[in-house]
Amino acid sequence: MAEGILVFVEQRGGQVRKASLEALSEAHRKVATVGGAVTAFIVGKDVKSIAGSLAKYHPSKILVSDSADFENYSTEGYATALTEAVKKTDAKYVFAANTALSKDLLPRVAARLDAPLVSDVTEFVVDGNNLLPKRPQYSGKTYTVYEFNSPVGLVTLRPNVFAIEESSNNVNCPIEDLAVSAGEVKAKVTATQAASGNKVELSEASVVVAGGRGIKGPENWPVLQSLCDQLGAALGASRAVVDAGWIDHQFQVGQTGKTVSPQLYIACGISGAIQHLAGMNSSKVIVAINNNPDAEIFKHATYGIVGDVLEVVPKLTEELKKMNSNN
């Protein structure tokens, strides 16, 4: 009988994704229910040295596929490695963070294993020894709870939803090699260009400040950027301003943009269209700044300020600056 949870830990250039640590922490919280142990799996070139840093997130074992084959990402090569790891551990569940890489990789692995995948999960419902993944659909207008009917089920977890649990002590855990080669690869990543954008990645930021048509024009981004700087926030945008050419699509939040789930989301001059809400309504606290008291966004905001965004935002930035300089 399959048991335990295998967590695919994503790294790029030796940096482990924060969202992967969230997945590892959630696996730790749920493994008693499932039975068996948590195994972390990391793949890449020269990743052995970073594998040890995963111990403080409580896996029982860390499995490493370290090979020149995996220097650059290829769906097929990584799929081979992850499939081997699943087979070796005979895990009942496979967790991964719902990132750009996972969106490409996990479905391929699921098809190879002939196993089901539920993506972008925000909660697990416990049912006996089983985990039932739950996720929003239809722009957050419904939630769906799924049940696996398979020895192994794959799940990707929405970033920023599951808390990280880190041990403060020095912990050790066994690290084991999993020797695999990429096999025949018919497509692979040949170049990566850093995008000029947020310092903090939008989908993983714990604070997001987003601007919509209410900011009046692209010349006012610096007003929002100053607020971002005080909050350590990532900048986001509505589709209306992306379509208007005020900002690049990589900043768009919503159904046809990014899904974010920060602790704090500040919507500046955004009306609150359902397609925008789809990308941010799982945020913990939502602040809306809008000069129309009847704007839909106020129905979804924890705190609402009726006012001119270009007047309110600088004042807020000023207050935060005062607070930050007092600390």
Partner: peptide
């Protein structure tokens, strides 16, 4: 597009 970068395949 990936987080913070673009990659060529």
């Amino acid at each position: 597009e990936i987080e913070g970068a673009h990659e060529t395949i």
